[in-house]
């Protein structure tokens, strides 16, 4: 499985309040949430984003609230992958649990600018910046988490396990 898209580049500590402001949390409708994705940090994001695009950010992406609405809004906005130097832990769990691909790779983050075209090979963990012809290898997930990703999320994984 591969992702290929244009990069939206953000800095440190992108919090869940700017990913999806709480004023929109009176619904859990994914499409409605996605229509406000990144609104308080990048008001034009939702107009510019195309299916397959990639978010790249510095450290502690997704800090703050436990709202799963944040990765859900990003996934529903058709972002194919989020690459960051580090993720806040609840956002990390939530992304894996709902099947939003995320990769921690500080070296890649340093070498990627806004608007670059990036390709990610999820099997090998290879991140390639097609604009600059550089590439990096993200650390592989532990086997248990890989199984969850393959099952497309925690619920499907557990259902398979429970059926055994």
């Amino acid at each position: 499985m591969k992702a290929h898209g244009t990069v939206f580049r953000y800095k440190d500590n992108v919090d869940t309040d700017v990913i999806i402001p709480a004023r929109y949390l009176n619904t859990s409708d994914a499409a409605e949430l996605a229509s406000h994705c990144m609104e308080d940090i990048d008001p034009t994001f939702i107009k510019r984003v195309k299916a397959g695009d990639i978010i790249v950010a510095d450290k502690n992406f997704g800090c703050g609230s436990s709202r799963e609405h944040a990765p859900l809004a990003i996934k529903t906005a058709k972002i194919s992958c989020v690459i960051a130097s580090s993720f806040a832990r609840i956002f990390y769990r939530n992304s894996i649990n709902i099947g939003l691909p995320i990769l921690e790779c500080p070296e890649a983050v340093k070498g990627i600018r806004d608007g670059d075209t990036v390709e990610v090979d999820f099997t090998s963990g290879l991140i390639s910046n097609l604009t600059t012809n550089e590439s990096w290898k993200a650390e592989a997930f532990p086997p248990f988490i890989q199984k969850m990703i393959e099952a497309e999320g925690l619920v499907q994984y557990l259902k398979k396990e429970m059926a055994k």
């Binding site: 799963e68 649990n97 619920v155």
Partner: peptide, 10 residues
């Protein structure tokens, strides 16, 4: 600890 909604469901 805080978790997400899917964790809560599980």
């Amino acid at each position: 600890t805080g978790v997400g909604s899917t964790d809560m469901a599980a």
